[in-house]
Amino acid sequence: MKNTRPSISFTPAPLAFKDQELAAAQDMVRACMQCGTCTASCPNAFAMDLAPRQMWRMLLFGLTQEVLESRTFWLCSACYSCTLRCPRGLPLTAAMATLKRLAAAEGDSANRKKALFYQEFMHNVEQNGRIQEMGFMCHYFLAMHDPLLPLEYTPLGLKLLAKGKLRLGGRGQRGRLGPLFAKVRSMEGAS
């Protein structure tokens, strides 16, 4: 199948962006007092290589490469338990998302691949205005270049198909978000 659509266009590249994102993530956790409430509250901590508490300290020590090589921030499911409970009131869920952005921009190919899910999603939103769930998953499979991945989704796909849930949503908003995406891209590239 020939893939004619443009390559992912929302991978932010400018160096200034990376410096800015790194500084933003560090600022978010600057007041961390290493109590570990975040780690204890995280439902996914069991699968992380760095405990969140440990990762914040490494980030502040400038161990950026080590942090970006970890899988910890990719395992944040945005449940906001740590943000809610942090006795310092730090926006830890937002810090996790900032690391995802930083890793996508600066990281190695493994990190870029992990970011593809989100980037493909946003690409679909940019094109269609409203996410087209099925189209998005198809493009995600293609972008991942993993022939086994679609098989993982076959049982779910068949279930959804049988329930008449693999339908296309409204197409009326197609292209509607083009100007907004373009504007945001120019603003973030320029800053």
């Binding site: 939103v125 509607r176 973030e188």
Partner: peptide, 19 residues
């Protein structure tokens, strides 16, 4: 009328302004 996607949980890992 004419509402569009809010970015779900995918916008924040891509762009803070778009979020």
């Amino acid at each position: 009328p004419d509402w569009t996607c809010c970015g779900a949980s995918a916008a924040e890992p891509v762009s803070s302004l778009l979020t």
